[in-house]
Design a protein around this nucleic acid. Structure first.
Lengths: 156, 156
DNA sequence: AGCAGGACAGAATCTTATTCGGTCCCATTG
DNA sequence: CAATGGGACCGAATAAGATTCTGTCCTGCT
């Protein structure tokens, strides 16, 4: 994250916002179609999208893969609390967690916990292994609270 | 969600899994490149990907847009508890919540709360409005707990 | 009014997607 | 055991789309 203030909204005009909205819904919409939808030429559209990527407004394009289909039907949100005397190590620790294949998202939050881990595993055994060996088993972790996810749906 | 058992993993071979892994990282990798990476012909690759979409293994392709750049720098995870005498209305209620522009994800979970709402708003005022008017203000909601999100990173 | 900078459009080019016909492999059947 | 049917795959041809380049227009500044 770059510390460039509230992300200078002045840098984005209504057309950019339209492009972002369209690409958020369909990340594979052809450049042609995009250009027509927002009312600019394809070539212009291309440079705008390149710019949005460089700015960081678009962080990437990803297929939304159903975890159940890749052998990870069990999903959970794990709230993790770090020992107060190890708070400065949170960054590195969370980064190492992000490297675990089962981990899909890491949310650093305020409140009774330090971060939330969205994980998808093959079975509850694997889930337990992560919790006991990668979290509770670590001297950095003061406690965890696991919530099984029954269903996950995107907004809009 | 279709109730087709543990998503019949037998339907996916190692090549399919490779394709899913690649597309999850880069949803815009050209079909050409994909085919070469997994060792099949482009035409074959195309039919496989079409099939993965039809099966539901790939739910869609989306640009990962930084909320801060579209005027929503404030993110939060809101834990929502539904009144026990209104549990059967959760589905419709959550669905209506998913329609709010600020809502990015809805997680139905087990534990002390019924679902988690990942929201991104323009300011804390908007966040408050959602909590008081769309959640606490509703007779369905027994309580909420809001955690500001300082940072969100994807796994891997 | 003249000038410089930036953004855009349109045409040309090149890359990529998609379709189509035919081949190979495997399992089933006579 | 050989013939048959089905499925998946490949490669070439075609269609579609991406990308580059050049010239124009608009805007802001002097």
């Amino acid at each position: 994250m770059t510390p460039d203030t509230p992300k200078d909204l002045r840098a984005l005009d209504p057309i950019d916002l339209d492009l972002l909205a369209l690409l958020e819904v369909d990340g594979r919409m052809p450049n042609n179609a995009l250009a027509e939808r927002v009312g600019i030429a394809p070539s212009t559209c291309l440079t705008r999208i390149r710019r949005l990527r460089e700015l960081g407004a678009i962080r990437g394009f990803h297929a939304d893969v159903d975890p159940a289909w890749i052998g990870r039907p069990i999903q959970a949100m794990i709230a993790v609390r770090i020992r107060s005397d190890a708070r400065d190590a949170i960054g590195k620790f969370a980064e190492s967690l992000a490297g675990i294949p089962a981990v899909r998202d890491v949310y650093f939050v305020s409140g009774s916990y330090d971060f939330l881990l969205h994980v998808a595993t093959a079975d509850v055994g694997d889930l337990r292994t992560i919790i006991t060996e990668r979290l509770s088993g670590t001297h950095l972790v003061a406690g965890t609270e696991t919530h099984l996810i029954f269903e996950h749906r995107r907004g809009n």
